Simulated scan of single mutants.
Amino acid sequence: MRRRGRKKSGFRLTHLILLLLVFGIGKTLISQNMMIKDLTNKKLKEEEEIAQLQEDIEELNDEIKNKDSLTFVEKIAREDLRMVRPREIIYVDKGKDKSPFSFFRK
């Protein structure tokens, strides 16, 4: 009598397919997790930028409301046109450079 129902012990093709399937699913889950983290970080940056822009819009709206006041005119004259009042002294720091990375330039 021969035994037909005997199983071979060892590595089979079904084991290989199952291993590849598990590997593929794991790789997909890891890449999706990384993508979710990247998108979350991008969303946070965009929300911060939106908040900053909303603050800028509010500031500009306030300036528009106050455009006819003397304080606004004086502010624009001082900041944009570099105007000063009579007998006012302006001190300029020659050692101060506009760029924070000026020590890299030679």
Rank of each mutant, 00 (worst) to 15 (best):
A77L: 15
S69A: 02
D62N: 15
K67E: 14
N66W: 08
Q32I: 03
L19H: 10
K106S: 06
K43Y: 07
E59H: 09
Q54W: 01
I25Y: 04
R82C: 11
N61I: 13
K7Q: 13
M83S: 03
K98M: 05
G95V: 02
R6A: 10
H15P: 00
K98D: 11
K37R: 14
S31M: 08
R85V: 02
D97N: 13
D62H: 11
G26P: 01
N66G: 06
E79H: 10
F11P: 01
I17C: 00
I64H: 10
F11N: 02
K42E: 13
R12V: 02
L39S: 05
K75N: 09
D38L: 10
E55D: 13
K7N: 09
G95A: 09
K45G: 04
K27Y: 13
L20S: 02
L60I: 11
F11Q: 04
I57P: 01
D56S: 07
F23S: 10
E49K: 14
S99A: 10
K96H: 03
F104P: 01
K7L: 11
T40H: 04
P100Y: 04
F23L: 13
I17N: 03
I17L: 07
R78T: 04
K45M: 13
E55I: 05
L21Q: 09
I30D: 02
E63L: 14
V73P: 00
F11S: 04
R2W: 03
K37G: 07
S31C: 04
K8P: 00
F103Q: 09
R3F: 08
T71W: 09
K106D: 07
V92Y: 06
D80R: 14
E58S: 11
E79A: 09
I30V: 08
K106E: 07
S99C: 10
D56V: 04
P100G: 01
L39K: 12
K27I: 12
K106T: 05
Q52G: 06
D56F: 02
L16H: 05
L53G: 00
K7D: 06
D38N: 11
G26M: 04
